[in-house]
Amino acid sequence: MASQGTKRSYEQMETDGERQNATEIRASVGKMIDGIGRFYIQMCTELKLSDYEGRLIQNSLTIERMVLSAFDERRNKYLEEHPSAGKDPKKTGGPIYKRVDRKWMRELVLYDKEEIRRIWRQANNGDDATAGLTHMMIWHSNLNDTTYQRTRALVRTGMDPRMCSLMQGSTLPRRSGAAGAAVKGVGTMVMELIRMIKRGINDRNFWRGENGRKTRSAYERMCNILKGKFQTAAQRAMMDQVRESRNPGNAEIEDLIFLARSALILRGSVAHKSCLPACVYGPAVASGYDFEKEGYSLVGIDPFKLLQNSQVYSLIRPNENPAHKSQLVWMACNSAAFEDLRVLSFIRGTKVSPRGKLSTRGVQIASNENMDAMESSTLELRSRYWAIRTRSGGNTNQQRASAGQISVQPAFSVQRNLPFDKPTIMAAFTGNTEGRTSDMRAEIIRMMEGAKPEEMSFQGRGVFELSDERAANPIVPSFDMSNEGSYFFGDNAEEYDN
């Protein structure tokens, strides 16, 4: 993207840094990872977990959730003011799984939030270390993106479920800051804005008074975040219109849905970061690795190297396929839920299948599930090659597409044709070009129609051997075009429920 120079890199967003050079960025990201790792080690000690239990991804998720809940100030305040039966607002906890007599047992633990905050700050040299908290939120978000298709949420806001490739980060909490905003897809931002506008339509006082002023500035800020994701002048001009509207209503909703559809071809720039579970960072720190000293990046080879040398386990339900569970977590670790499966298959070195073909449910185990038949197995999170994460949407291309997802959002900077089903997408653009945004709409449609099938995206960008740390010898991959490109292809993934 041309304006790259004016933006802070995501590592800076990730670490609240002012302008830093590459070495400083690597050190501050490393410091953040160190903090998460030290916190995780301490929690495993508190909970008396064995090494194996500490490497269980379900335990990692519970521990991450506990610290996120302990620092969720708004919710904590709300819980104190609106006490609900049987919930102690000062405590947080969740299921911890232990191996007892050759069987997995679930144990519900409860801790004072104050105590968890103390352990977290102690692991982070006394700081609140917001960057580390956001990092864990993005890992949870990436896992949700890989596990669930947001059909219901899309339909509720009037969008087409086939636009799911635009929904990265749709389950990120509001408090995820600049680093969170960077990884949100165009569809996620559109959905947040539509929800806001709908509230304004239904509630006369939404934009009024002292609160209304705050609401208005939040609305304009979200519009600017979305505008910054678009790469064409016409899309940005249309966002200006939406932002400046005196009284946002149905016309703005129409414009936003139009823009979301246009992003299936004229893709937005959305950041991709490899955020790993805390149970990967903990053992690495415990083994003596100093992330701050060595430096770390979320968008280069580092996460690949770390996963190459990590042992992570997962509980497996009786009829689940461990290899499929591994694929789910591998995609989440690489922030690749909406990437082209052919690119992923090449990088991973084994075939990556669409969601609907995987015999696996989510990673988390519900409290009512029976533990008797639970097994555990090693997650295979290694890769054959590594590639640089991208934040450009890439230019655009036609490809055989599917009944489910009709476009992709690249996660890796790797040369390819970008699949999208042009006739299906263009069919949504018939007729409606009147109104105050008509010239911009016409211009956007013209650009979409001009998108050429034979153009290559990320020209000359390749993948790298894991021994090639400096990215000196790019390998331009070859793809098996007979395979499906979309992950949520004609899909039956479970729906995400809060």
Rank of each mutant, 00 (worst) to 15 (best):
S413P: 03
A366R: 02
E73W: 11
L418A: 01
G185A: 12
P303D: 06
G228H: 08
D127Y: 05
Y289I: 14
K90N: 14
W104R: 09
L56P: 11
G362M: 06
M440H: 12
Q405L: 02
T424K: 01
D128M: 04
E114M: 06
V312P: 01
R416F: 00
A336L: 15
G5D: 01
N321W: 10
N473L: 11
Q415D: 00
P173T: 10
N59K: 13
E494D: 12
E494H: 09
R175G: 02
M136W: 01
R204P: 01
S478H: 14
K198H: 07
R389P: 01
A131G: 08
M222K: 07
T134I: 03
T437G: 01
L172Y: 02
G404T: 12
N142F: 12
G490I: 01
L298C: 10
A85P: 14
M196C: 07
K90L: 09
A182S: 11
Q405F: 08
S50D: 05
A332I: 08
I257C: 14
G282F: 10
S407H: 08
Q122G: 01
G349D: 05
T188S: 15
I388W: 04
W104V: 14
V285P: 11
A411F: 06
Q235A: 10
N395Y: 07
D160G: 06
L276D: 02
M32E: 02
R436L: 06
L328E: 03
Q122Y: 02
A218S: 15
R55I: 09
T390W: 02
T360Y: 07
S377Q: 01
S326I: 13
C279S: 07
L108Y: 09
A403Q: 08
P423N: 04
G460A: 15
G17M: 15
I119N: 10
Y52G: 12
M440A: 14
K103T: 11
A471Q: 04
S457M: 01
G404L: 02
S402Y: 10
V329I: 15
S84W: 12
S274G: 11
G93K: 07
I201A: 12
M374T: 10
R400W: 07
S9Y: 10
L79P: 08
E339N: 06
Y496T: 02
A427M: 11
K87F: 01
P95E: 03
R99N: 10
R106P: 04
A153S: 11
C275M: 08
D480Q: 09
G349S: 11
R204G: 01
K305M: 08
P322A: 13
